[in-house]
Nucleic acid binder design. Structure first.
Length: 730
DNA sequence: ATAGGGTTAG
């Protein structure tokens, strides 16, 4: 028995050996890491043939297995050119770019020359790392070895310079770096180098350099053209990019799906849908419209041009939409305000077994933020954590924004504090969060920290900090920030900045000043800016100025509802019932209908919506019963109804009854009777909270001992203990 | 061997 076992083992060994031998002769037959490792083990055992680390390295690197490749490589005392090529290609394919540069430097230090197979990979790594200095040295290296005339090297060089776009390239320093970084260096080589590189001007646009390289290439392929076109697009040279496409066609090359997916985003950016449709037509005629790369950029283009229905159609024609196509269609719907559709598409994406990516969540999160559905936001957050996407800075910023918008500013802050590096979007989301919730000093402090840590705030950051000032009524600070924005940072104010300053002036009662400020804007004020002032006129009962402002609004937007309502309200408040009636008549003549006010609340992951005097809710009986009890208690505590905001020309008693039926009160009372004592109540309302409800909710918060958070059309109110975070300023 | 699509704050 023992003898036969030995024999069997020997036969097995012979068989394995012969398999190993044949595998080495034809390494392309190895398709998995497991097979490669078994072969490696056989080689290490060193049967009858010599162990060749370089052949196993070639196999590992072809399978793109960097760890195994590194191990095999480390056993090669003096690597051959092909071994260097293997290990560097494998590192490049695995995205280990700094390793590529490190290995290349080591290779050069042994005196081994670069070759045309290797250099494109090194250039790719350099482009990925945006290393301008090394890039120039590599360029010098390519020239000194005569590799710059190689098609692939030339393409990779052009790509490198496109990626370095924004960098200051001082090409005259290359000589020094040639010898220092990559061991070039003899006099004749440097002569060639100088002659070649001096023709690339240091001060010119980076794309000019790319174009020179392009023109000097002895041969060009579609990739060469696509690279220059891509560089033009990346550097905002849209006209030039499109001219290149035409020229490419005129020399007899056909734009491929790379070319088209590079230029389609131009029309998204410019919002030029008719040109975009032309390109779409071209893709259909050439059978390219079913490719995912084309499809994704078309979906995005139509969405950015607000033709989201076209996006859906493009998606519908894709035979095999990949995760990116799904991301695009989700982004398309969310960007166009179709939040429920975005969420539905996400579920559909999961249902077809595609794995979501970090981008998926940064596209989708704003849907929860806009819908104020905290429970959905939390579900997505847990998905983010389980999927390991919580390290992505886009996702983190989107989460900060979502939690802030869904009313949970504390969690937003916790996520913000945990961010290892905060970009401008992260800072701005957090600042905007505080602006919406009330603690303006937190917003202002964060803005200062951001200036210290992140340098230059952009215009959105100023929108956020000005919003914080306006919500807190900080007139002087707002004006200071506005001045600093224009003077210190050279940012041209846009509509939102003007709106915020006009708002803060108006709220502070400086309505005439606000009028002057708006009149002096360097862009034409829109009806929305004037409407802000109109609102202030109503609060400060300045009917005269209100009429002047309303006239401007009606000229700009004759069919906007809000100014009609406000004017009617102003007239009612000053007892001008006839004017008020005329205004409402005018609205009827124009066919304008008031948007119904509604409020909603989430109870046990279900959303309950209420409109004013809503009797449709199954718990209506309980709600009125609880409200009556609450009302008595409120009266005892000193609550007096304020009917100033009630529009209708009716008796005082009826006005009070109207107030009591306001949708937010129904939602709050329903929240109180449906949750355990002490639970925070979160209600969302589609329009501004009225003065009386604001007072009433303060009383309610004290009586029931709960925090009540109401999100209205433009901010959050945290009611607690008879006070509100907005400081009665909203 | 070289190139490409979708993302967050208002």
């Amino acid at each position: 028995m023992a003898a036969s076992a030995v024999q069997a083992a020997q036969t097995a060994a012979v068989t394995t050996k012969s398999i190993a031998k044949s595998l080495l002769r034809d390494p392309s037959s190895i398709h998995s890491r497991c097979q490669a490792q078994q072969l490696h083990a056989q080689l290490l055992k060193g049967y009858s043939f010599p162990y060749t680390a370089s052949s196993i390295l070639a196999i590992y690197s072809r399978l793109c297995l960097p760890d195994d490749s590194f191990r095999a490589f480390s056993f090669i005392p003096s690597p051959s050119p092909s071994s260097w090529t293997s290990i560097i290609s494998c590192s490049a394919a695995a995205g280990l770019f700094s390793h590529v540069l490190f290995l290349f430097q080591r290779m050069r230090s042994t005196g081994a020359p670069p070759n045309h197979k290797l250099l494109p990979n090194v250039l790719k790594a350099c482009a990925a790392l945006r290393s301008s200095k090394l890039g120039e040295s590599l360029h010098a290296c390519a020239i000194s070895f005569g590799l710059d005339s190689d098609l692939f090297t030339g393409n990779a060089l052009m790509n490198l310079y496109c990626k370095l776009g924004g960098f200051q390239n001082d090409l005259n320093r290359s000589e020094e770096m040639l010898s220092r970084d990559f061991g070039g260096g003899c006099a004749s080589k440097i002569g060639i180098l100088e002659r070649n590189i001096s023709r690339l001007s240091a001060g010119a646009s980076p794309m000019d350099n790319v174009r020179k390289l392009f023109e000097e290439m002895p041969e060009r392929d579609v990739v060469s053209w696509n690279t220059v076109i891509g560089g033009d697009v990346e550097n905002g040279l849209y006209v030039e990019a499109l001219r290149m496409v035409m020229e490419m066609i005129s020399v007899g090359l056909r734009p491929d799906s790379f070319t088209l997916s590079t230029v389609i985003p131009i029309f998204a950016e410019l919002g030029n849908v008719s040109k975009g449709k032309e390109i779409h037509g071209y893709t259909i005629r050439n059978g390219l419209d079913r490719e995912v790369f084309i499809g994704s950029s078309l979906i995005d283009m139509y969405a950015k041009c607000t033709l989201v229905e076209y996006s859906y159609r493009v998606m519908g024609f894709l035979p095999n939409p990949d995760a990116v196509a799904w991301n695009s269609i989700i982004a398309a719907s969310v960007q166009n305000g179709q939040f429920d559709e975005g969420l539905r598409l996400f579920r559909e994406m999961l249902a077809v077994k595609l794995k979501p990516m970090a981008v998926t969540f940064s596209c989708l999160m704003p849907a929860c933020a806009h819908l104020t559905t905290l429970h959905l936001g939390k579900q997505l957050h847990s998905y983010v954590i389980r999927g390991g996407f919580d390290g992505n800075v886009f996702v983190q910023s989107a989460l900060v924004d979502m939690y802030a918008k869904c009313g949970n500013i504390c969690v937003a802050r916790r996520i913000f504090d945990a961010m290892p590096s905060v970009d401008m979007v992260g800072w701005t989301s957090m600042i905007m969060g505080y602006a919406l919730h009330g603690p303006a000093y937190e917003a202002l402090n964060l803005f200062r920290s951001m200036e210290m840590e992140n340098g230059k705030p952009n215009y959105v950051a100023f929108v956020a900090v000005l919003t914080a000032c306006s919500h807190a009524g900080l007139v002087d600070e707002a004006q200071k920030f506005f001045d600093r924005m224009t003077k210190d940072y050279g940012i041209t104010p846009c509509l939102e900045h003007y709106a915020a300053v006009a708002d803060v002036l108006g709220r502070a009662g400086k309505v005439e000043e606000a009028y002057d400020f708006i009149s002096k804007m360097h862009i034409k004020p829109t009806s929305s800016v004037w409407s802000i002032l109109l609102g202030a006129c109503r609060v400060y009962k300045n009917a005269e100025l209100a009429e002047k402002v309303a006239k401007k609004i009606f000229e700009l937007e004759p069919s906007e509802i809000a100014p009609h309502l406000i004017m009617s309200n102003i007239y009612s408040a000053s007892g001008k019932w006839k004017e008020a009636a005329d205004m409402r008549m005018l609205m009827r003549k124009k066919g304008l209908k008031k948007q119904p006010a509604c409020s909603w609340i989430e109870i046990k992951n279900k959303v309950h919506g209420f409109v004013a005097h809503d009797v449709s809710h199954p718990c209506y009986g309980n709600i009125t019963e609880a409200w009556e009890a609450l009302k008595d208690q409120m009266k005892r505590e000193g609550y007096v109804p304020n009917t100033e905001d009630v529009l209708h020309d009716v008796e005082e008693e009826q006005k009070i009854a109207n107030l009591c039926g306001h949708s937010e009160r129904l939602a709050i009372v329903f929240g109180i009777i449906s949750t355990p004592p002490g639970t925070t109540i979160r209600v969302t309302k589609n329009i501004r909270v009225c003065v009386d409800c604001h007072t009433a909710i303060k009383f309610i918060s004290k009586i029931v001992g709960r925090e009540i958070i109401v999100r209205d059309f433009n901010r959050f109110h945290h009611f607690k203990d008879n006070g509100c975070s907005c400081g009665d300023f909203w």
